[in-house]
Amino acid sequence: MPYEPPTHRVERSIRALTGARVVAGIDEVGRGAWAGPVTVCAAVTGLRRPPEGLTDSKLLTPLRRTALAEVLTGWVTSYALGHASPEEIDTLGMTAALRLAASRALEGLPDRPDAVILDGKHDYLGPPWQVRTVIKGDQSCVAVAAASVIAKVRRDAMLAELAPEHPPFGFETNAGYPSPVHKTALEEHGPTPHHRRSWAFLDALPRWRHLKLPSHRDALAAEDLEEAGQLGMF
């Protein structure tokens, strides 16, 4: 299906209105997963022409996404990744965990950004960062699209590395997200140390329900659980 390539329109607007020199695009991956960290990439791209085919990582095939990520890591001006662990997600709730992961990514950049373009409608970052939220920013903004691809490829690789430790769960293919294989493995084996034990999927597993931790029903987590429910996983 054809799509419009991302542009620097939002970044140019921010630069013109605020005088910002360094503008970072950030995107997350893993928010709706049952296992693994939530990962945020912060990417600074300047105003150069992006690589051919750049778009939201979800619109790319795995092979194309991996190849593009290799190009992007050398093309961007700078990038950094931040993660929040399953334990941090359980303890803090998803909104605070995203803020933590994003802050780690932004603080990992060599130059502190003057402004941030954040994918979506929720500003989970807040002060002291100057944030512009953009719905579908991973499709329309070059820096956010680049962050989207790098974050997805890196997190998928992290989950694939965990797969040999937990073969029944299919982490190498589902990256910790809901899937029939993942659900069957949970029913038979219970959660691994990499699962988010405050999440509602444990409510549907009578053998393992006693392992569930108190949940944090913040706005973002509620959206994630609703989306997973629509997939028929609960």
Rank of each mutant, 00 (worst) to 15 (best):
P128F: 05
G108N: 10
L54G: 10
I26N: 01
H166Q: 14
P37V: 02
L68G: 10
V116T: 13
Y177D: 04
A24R: 09
P6F: 07
L17R: 08
K183R: 13
R48C: 06
E226T: 12
K183P: 00
L213E: 08
R155M: 08
D114C: 02
R64A: 11
G74C: 08
E88V: 03
A101C: 03
L213P: 05
R31D: 06
G36W: 01
A228V: 04
H210C: 07
L231F: 03
R196N: 00
E107M: 07
A143D: 07
G93S: 03
S13W: 07
L231P: 10
A69S: 13
R132G: 13
E28I: 05
I117K: 03
A185T: 05
G232L: 12
I117R: 09
T39M: 00
R132S: 14
G137H: 13
H195R: 02
G229R: 14
A102S: 15
A115Q: 06
G120S: 09
M233N: 11
G74I: 06
G229S: 14
R207T: 09
H8S: 11
V29P: 03
A143E: 01
I150Q: 15
E107T: 00
P113S: 07
A24Y: 00
P191E: 05
Y124D: 10
W208I: 10
E87M: 08
T184S: 15
A157S: 12
R154L: 08
P168E: 12
S103M: 01
G93L: 11
K152W: 00
G93N: 15
A160R: 15
D123C: 04
M1T: 10
A147S: 02
H8P: 02
V181S: 02
P168F: 05
D123N: 15
L109A: 06
K152E: 05
G30H: 02
P37K: 08
F171G: 11
H8F: 08
L211Y: 04
K212S: 01
I26K: 14
S198C: 00
A42N: 08
E226I: 07
P50L: 00
L47C: 08
T133A: 10
R155P: 00
Q230F: 06
A24T: 00
V76C: 13
H216G: 01
F201V: 13
G170V: 12
H194N: 05
R65I: 03
E226L: 05
R31I: 10
R15V: 06
L225H: 05
L54F: 10
E165Q: 15
Y177F: 03
L118A: 11
W208S: 12
G25P: 09
A204V: 04
D123V: 01
I89G: 11
A160Q: 13
E70M: 02
T91K: 09
G74L: 03
Q139P: 06
R155A: 05
E223V: 04
L125S: 01
V134S: 13
V40A: 01
T95H: 11
T91Y: 05
A146G: 09
